[in-house]
Amino acid sequence: MNEQRRQILQMLAEGKITADEAERLIDALEREQPESPPGATPRPKPRPKYLRVLVNSEDNLGGEGPGRVNIRVPLQLLRAGVRLTSLIPPQALTQVNAELNKSGVPIDLTQLKPQHIEELIEQLDDVTVDVDQPGTKVQVFCE
């Protein structure tokens, strides 16, 4: 028995509400939280489909007024993009590595396998980033 139902019955026992009122409250409670049949597995959480990036800035940049950015990208698009990176020829990756090294970013892109990036995208579902600054708010999340 859940806590709310117990409270309703308690109020009925104490005479604070009538039996009719208790029945209506319990009905309303059941409508709000439909009970799953015994033995049924709990429904899995629906998988997010989109990556959202929201930026709200009250700062008056360049005298043009406040700015707002609202981006919604399907996660499937990120996956497709990641798969496309596997087509980059190795010699191009070597050149990119050399340029990155020159710029002071020593990242070896040849070590970045498509399956690693796929895993990264898979785990992106749970990512939530909130940045609050006076006058600016940035939110990154999946929905």
Binding site: K49, Y50, L61, E64, G65, P66, G67, R68, V69, N70, I71, R72, V73, P74, Q76, L77, R79, A80, G81, R83, L84
Partner: peptide, 16 residues
């Protein structure tokens, strides 16, 4: 695959 995954994309940028 990239083309097939495009529906649902929305980009809005407002400045003033």
């Amino acid at each position: 695959q990239l083309l097939w995954a495009l529906p649902g994309t929305r980009i809005e940028v407002e400045q003033g």
